[in-house]
Design a protein around this nucleic acid. Sequence first.
DNA 1: CTCTAACGGCACGGCACGTGCCGTTGACAA
DNA 2: TTGTCAACGGCACGTGCCGTGCCGTTAGAG
Lengths: 193, 193
Amino acid sequence: MSDDRLTRAADRTQAIMRTTLELAQEVGYAKLSIEAVAARTGVGKHTIYRRWPSKGALFLDAVLTPNEPGLHYADTGDIVADLRQQIHAAVDLLGQPPLGPLYRALVGEAQHNPMVAAALNERFIRPQADRTVARLRRAQEQGQLSSEFDLDVAMAILSGPLYFRLLITQEPLTHEYVERVLKVLLAGMTPRP
Amino acid sequence: MSDDRLTRAADRTQAIMRTTLELAQEVGYAKLSIEAVAARTGVGKHTIYRRWPSKGALFLDAVLTPNEPGLHYADTGDIVADLRQQIHAAVDLLGQPPLGPLYRALVGEAQHNPMVAAALNERFIRPQADRTVARLRRAQEQGQLSSEFDLDVAMAILSGPLYFRLLITQEPLTHEYVERVLKVLLAGMTPRP
DNA sequence: CTCTAACGGCACGGCACGTGCCGTTGACAA
DNA sequence: TTGTCAACGGCACGTGCCGTGCCGTTAGAG
């Protein structure tokens, strides 16, 4: 079996990513070192550098891999209910530990490291945004939204204030807050006669 | 004159901050080192550490000090015109070099360093947000906005999508984009009978 | 004419980086 | 069964920057 080789390698990869998340939660991303990850995992530094080119790339993989499928996105036929469900799920996921602080650090690293920024976009941001816009488009085609309504901007208004709180003002993300955002968005969203 | 002492010290402070911005633009914030700033400024490292406790604090000061007054905020009596003027000024300031990339790096650092996050909030984010909400409140009192309209959320909808583009999707900040955001916001903003 | 604080220059120990080398392990092919 | 080979853990190395001492100098303050 050649599977054993691959399985052993995959196991090590998983173990390294687990240790990375552990250490990041204990000391913070800024003080995280590949040296420490290697030591705690019981692995040579080469084994890490063979898989990831930088601390940022390792951290990105460690944070995103367990959340790869992204947020669940229902289509119940009711666009308001679906948007509400989705934005509350985002608050639950990003607004609290464990993922919240890790995700904040990941976005922070993306500001310094273009490779991390690109990968974060492709693996998490864009798929999520695309699903939101697609759902909005279906609603628009069914006449639940005004036909001139700007779907891309609507998506940005759903996400932007959430990220603004998470990254800029650093106030807690609450369900009450996103509900207020949703309310204002809906005021400009419903079809006009 | 004791002024000479203070003047010399202030001159050195200015020179260090100038060099910091220079080097940050040349090599990026990630590769910026206090050692290099000291060397290029022709200054001992102590002289820097005496003024700032960390690279992050130095960078914050270097970026914000020249932009301390914040964005100009007119009150022409027309709330729509004022919001439009203000958000376009934000695009001009943050959407392009030199400040754009520096500001992105600053927000990134704030995700790893609570002191930087707090100072960024107090010196730039909150004053700006407060001015926006205050302007909205005046408009509301004058009946230009519905009395139940959520002013804090309106501010977040003005800022959030802008930061979302700047930090997350990293698409260029354009006047056309913020104009679309404004249009959607206004749809939920006007008074209802 | 001292006194003193801030200074530039230099050296230091410490840490993490990224990269070599070496001996070992274990799956696979001959 | 034996030989091959890639991945591995362990170790050491040179490098860069950290933050902090010390030392001699400089230029106002008293």
